[in-house]
């Protein structure tokens, strides 16, 4: 869902064969897709492994804030929808891990990198989901921001990543719509329910804008990703698209967005907005956000509690295989 890994420092290039590098860049410039067994620069491979796996980790960790509400969903309908959405997030994580594995890294290594804190996931999932309207606001704003990020990734130069993103984008629009639908329903309810919606949006608006990563003037590292056609738009361009799409939706919903600087520029047709609190952003990335420790604790527990299942499945498979070869 989330592509903040694009903002990490470029991987050291090492020494590459100039001729091969030029041929590779020419393929990219012709919009040819790169497939796993094709020659690629080590830095391209490393950048992709990091980006795709961090994207996968984000999908998996993203199940936690929503899982928080499964048992307390207000109706069977909303519970079924939420379960389906969470299952999709797990599925998205799996598509992405598979895409990363085509680059020569194992699933076990990737999971290990997440659990040891070596790999990051999107800052957004380190915020709590405090009231039921948060589930709607996550769908509308967080999945909405994710869609803005992900649509250009469908055209990414690396074939397996591009194909995974196409599948994900098809499913993601359900996520955003169910969130908006949930908020519309609450806005038709009591004054208290309306306040819950406003409260959720107030808390999640800025973290959603941070999902696009730092401002272009502070993001020096996307040049390689742009050149390799992994990334096609800058952070600020994508953030602007998101704001422009979301402001009219907020109006229809009947809530305000918590940004006093938000105003329409008649000339450009774009909504100008204030700056997110970048200190908060970097602090969250570093592991000091509201829920970082809880999220990692929950992931590690889920992984450790599942160890006996994985072991039993393998023991059973080995036993069956032995029986078959003996017969």
């Amino acid at each position: 869902m989330y592509t903040q890994a694009l903002n990490n420092p470029a991987v050291e290039a090492g020494v590459e064969d100039e001729e091969k590098l030029a041929a590779f860049q020419a393929r990219i410039d012709r919009e040819e897709k790169i497939e796993p067994n094709d020659w690629m620069p080590a830095a391209y491979r490393k950048t992709l492994v990091r980006q795709i796996s961090q994207h996968a980790h984000s999908e998996v960790v993203g199940m936690l804030p929503e899982g928080n509400w499964v048992t307390r969903a207000p109706s069977l309908k909303r519970k079924a929808i939420l379960l389906a959405k969470i299952q999709d997030e797990g599925g998205h994580g799996l598509y992405l891990y598979s895409a990363a594995e085509t680059l020569g890294v194992s699933r076990e290594e990737l999971v290990d990198q997440l659990l040891t804190g070596k790999a990051k996931y999107s800052s957004i999932f380190n915020y709590p989901t405090l009231n039921w309207a948060d589930v709607g606001a996550v769908g509308w704003l967080v999945d909405g921001a994710a869609i803005m990020n992900q649509i250009p990734l469908c055209r990414c130069s690396f074939g397996p990543y591009s194909r995974a993103m196409i599948r994900i984008c098809k499913e993601e629009s359900f996520h955003q719509r169910q969130g908006y639908d949930l908020l519309v329903a609450m806005m038709k309810g009591t004054a208290e329910q309306q306040e819950m919606v406003q409260d959720a949006v107030n808390r999640l608006w800025w973290p959603a804008l941070m999902m696009f990563g730092p401002s272009d003037k502070d993001s020096k590292h996307s040049a390689d990703s742009m050149k390799w056609k992994i990334k096609r738009f800058t952070n600020d361009e994508l953030r602007q698209k998101f704001v422009d799409a979301t402001v009219p939706q907020a109006k229809v919903l009947g809530i305000s967005l918590p940004d006093p600087d938000l105003k329409l520029n008649e000339e450009t047709g774009h909504w100008e907005h204030g700056e997110p609190d970048w200190d908060e952003f970097y602090n969250t990335i570093k592991g000091n956000g509201i829920c970082n420790k809880q999220r990692m604790k929950d992931r590690i527990k889920a992984h450790e509690d599942g160890a006996w299942v994985r072991e039993a499945a393998q023991a059973y498979a080995a036993k069956q295989a032995a029986k078959k070869s003996a017969a």
Binding site: L94, A164, A317
Partner: peptide, 23 residues
């Protein structure tokens, strides 16, 4: 469609159903 990890063929089929045919 993609790939899955599983201990044996039967679990691979079930995982493939869950991961790749939800719709």
């Amino acid at each position: 469609a993609g790939s899955v990890h599983a201990a044996d063929a039967e679990m691979a089929l079930q995982a493939a159903r869950d991961v790749y045919t939800r719709r």
